[in-house]
Design a protein around this nucleic acid. Structure first.
Lengths: 212, 212
DNA sequence: TAGATTGTTAATCGATTAACAATC
DNA sequence: TAGATTGTTAATCGATTAACAATC
């Protein structure tokens, strides 16, 4: 099926829509207009309608949008109805936090394994998943149909390992290392650069105190 | 001093420039042209020059930019030369990961305290900082000149606590809770919505597999 | 001086907002 | 039917890129 190219600006807003629609659902609200939703979310109604229309119309003139239907449709657009196996490489604090923490399962992500080259953590368990040594990595990825790799290792380790991961057929990297990864077209990298986020915070504090 | 309004698009790029300039410095490179930097970073030279010129000229015609100088100047723009005390609320996996993990100190952020309302973790230490009960929170913030609060607690706890934090005079929130916080103008919120990031990843996987 | 490369203005592109006809 | 609200086109705004004069 041909898909028109959707801008990353739109895609970045989808999870937020999804979150708000989930809340509306929990509140038992059945329908909502772009106007009402725009007031809740602090965006323009026009943007909401434009965004949704990138994927075809989900609403009805004179009525608005059915919350439950829209929620499900956005979930589908986001691919949350699909299952993906993932592993975490790096069993340090952050890796363990992610292993324990997120509602991965609810989003269709299945936690299959965890790897680390530190002997002290190998063998330990995180949410019922054993930490394995890095020697087993490539074999494990191939044998277990791993689509997604979460990288919570230092910059240089990430750079060393990335080509192997691509060769093993990994489809996407959720990258927490403070480095830009160079991958072939078709492999998806989603970066979470915490350090960058903190610097933005820092900038905004400085700017505000200068202005006041 | 009057500061012209800089767009968030520009600000979001500053940490990345800072990172690359740090690497250049480590490699012992003294000067770089916008052209060379653009090739490394995969952005246009034009954008680089425009971005830097938002803050006044840092380069020299016919020469380019002095790496060391530019690095320092961007650091100043980002406010990394200033000191800020911060605390972490929520001593779960993620809170502990952040407490242990980041080069906070290198960026001028001083880790002063950690709070949790779970008796089992109260009293434990993270990087030499004791986990305190939530009852002490407001007093501690006021007594210790806390500028920044890192929120690694669930959505509802974050919503319950936010007004108090603002009243206590907190300047900025680094928010890891999956919720948009409503704060008065002047209080800075920097969100890290991990769940949103994961959904973006999910979308891009689905889209790619549809297209191929 | 000649060559290189910035700083900056102008042109283009894309994203957001406004407006309104279509239609439930 | 009349009123409401979408879907969509057109207008505006802002961000990116191109071009080039200034100048080191």
């Amino acid at each position: 099926m041909e898909t028109r190219e959707i801008s990353q600006a739109v895609i970045s807003r989808l999870p937020r829509y999804y979150r708000y629609l989930g809340e509306l659902k929990d509140e038992g609200i059945e329908r909502i207009s772009s106007q009402e939703l725009s007031e809740r979310m602090n965006v323009t109604a026009s943007q909401i309608r434009q965004d949704f229309n990138n994927f075809g119309g989900f609403g009805q003139q004179g009525y608005g949008y059915n919350v439950d239907y829209l929620y499900k449709e956005i979930g589908k657009i986001l691919g949350l109805d699909q299952k993906h196996n993932f592993i975490i490489i790096g069993a340090g604090n952050l890796g363990r936090a992610l292993g324990n923490y997120l509602n991965f399962e609810k989003r269709g992500f299945i936690f299959k394994g965890m790897f680390d080259n530190n002997d002290e953590v190998v063998g330990k368990e995180v949410r019922g998943v054993k930490v394995m040594p890095m020697d087993n990595l490539d074999e494990f990825i191939r044998a277990n149909n791993i689509d997604i790799v979460v990288l919570t290792i230092p910059k240089n380790s990430a750079l060393n390992i990335i080509d192997n991961l691509v060769e093993d057929g990994v489809k996407a990297i959720w990258n927490f290392a403070h480095v830009d990864l160079d991958v072939p077209e078709g492999v998806i990298v989603e970066n979470v650069h915490l350090s960058d986020s903190l610097m933005k915070l820092s900038y905004n504090i400085s700017r505000y105190s200068k202005e006041h």
